[in-house]
Design a protein around this nucleic acid. Structure first.
Lengths: 232, 232
DNA sequence: CGTTTTATGGTCAGATTGACTCTAAAAGGA
DNA sequence: TCCTTTTAGAGTCAATCTGACCATAAAACG
């Protein structure tokens, strides 16, 4: 593009980042919500987010927000840009362009505490309230992205702690996709995918019931060849 | 996110859209470039783009730019948001956040004429000059996206006119992926993909050499089940 | 100590894939 | 006209992959 040659064309635009932060808790896919304490949409639930600071990179702003809201460091979670939402009237106070991000975090590492005072909670994705602004759409887009990316990337491991069993990994897929997978076939495909998972050092788990499962950790791979397709 | 509660936080940010417009001409994947007539990067090639007007939706701005640069209407091409680039120093004049878009257009419908005066050309993707701003990265990201989306969507048809032969469709894949595909196997997979292509009304083509091929047109499908994976 | 539960290894028929072969239908040249 | 060249399109076949199962292993529970 070109620069602001004509200052008259420059709208006073504010740039924000909003985060759709997903995790899996209690066997359910959940999303972090913040209750707005200010107008507009005061009292309404919304995605965590905030303005990009002067001189701050957009990616850095997203990382900062993720850290502020969950205490999660960049390397302990997956964070990627989702899409940018800039309809003229999406914020009644003025032109605000929001660069939405998708974050996947592990359960253990995401206390709701540590937030900047505002009330927050993990909400079941299957039972979300109507959100402020255009955040309903952002969440829908984020869900689509997450579900699709499980097929051809190793992203599912982002929902899990450092080491995990194949049953836990399968559970991630089942919860995100809302479909049952055959344990034996899932194992075969995952183990055949080069670099998806590698055996972890420690011994088996004590899961409580059933035969203890071997522990694995994420391998170096980030894309899956071939993909692990959703059941039709 | 929340609104501009503190006016001091609002940087004077300009929002632009930049377009990576790909087409296939002369059996090569090409990208539309504009030569900058103003500083910065004056004389350097860059992606077409411009500022989002006050009150204009970002998507609308992208459609407008596409129309201005190529004369292509929205429905005759594929246009999607790619990513947003907002590093603080990406534009030396000030903070400019660019919402990059990816466009795929058919050859016939894209004259370089009709442009707003600036010099423009189609450049081979394999032989691009060093572009202004961070446009090299935008192009690389757009290429990755396009190559990946050919696998699991019917996007390849966007490069072709309304009706086309399977050889032409295969050629799109081969040019974008830079790999040869077996004609017979390609045909089998495409015809087996429900709604990818449907036979066109008109008779066969006279291609010049060889047996004339049947004409097809894009079917209603937009995603491919199963995907048409790149050769390994 | 038997029952239940889950992990993990195998089996098998059917579907899919990649590599090829064969025929059809045109153009171009001798 | 007839032969050669070229590409479209149908078909074959072995290797691989997939989904649906079955079987055994290793724990907890009563």
């Amino acid at each position: 593009m070109s620069g602001p040659e004509d200052p008259l064309l420059i709208t006073n635009v504010a740039v924000a980042v909003d985060l759709a932060i997903f995790t899996i808790r209690e066997q359910r896919l959940q999303l972090l919500l913040i209750r707005r304490s200010l107008a507009p949409f005061r009292g309404r639930w919304a995605l965590p987010g905030g303005f990009v600071l002067p001189g701050e990179d957009i990616d850095a702003a997203a990382e900062r927000e993720l850290r502020e809201e969950t205490g999660v460091q960049r390397d302990a979670a997956h964070l990627e840009q989702l899409a940018t939402y800039g309809a003229p009237r999406r914020d009644p106070r003025g032109r605000v362009v929001s660069v939405a991000h998708l974050a996947l975090v592990a359960d253990a590492a995401t206390p709701v505490a540590g937030t900047d005072a505002a009330e927050s909670r993990w909400a079941d994705v299957a039972d979300l309230p109507h959100l402020a602004f255009d955040h309903d759409r952002i969440v829908a887009d984020g869900l689509d992205r997450a579900r699709a990316k499980l097929e051809y990337t190793t992203l599912a491991t982002s929902f899990l702690p450092t080491t995990f069993t194949l049953a836990e990994l399968r559970s991630v897929y089942e919860i995100v996709w809302g479909a049952q997978l055959d344990p034996a076939n899932f194992r075969r495909k995952v183990l055949a995918s080069d670099g998806f998972v590698v055996p972890a050092a420690g011994g088996p788990t004590v899961h409580g019931r059933g035969r203890p499962a071997a522990r694995y950790e994420a391998g170096g791979a980030t894309v899956l060849h071939p993909p692990l397709l959703r059941p039709t």
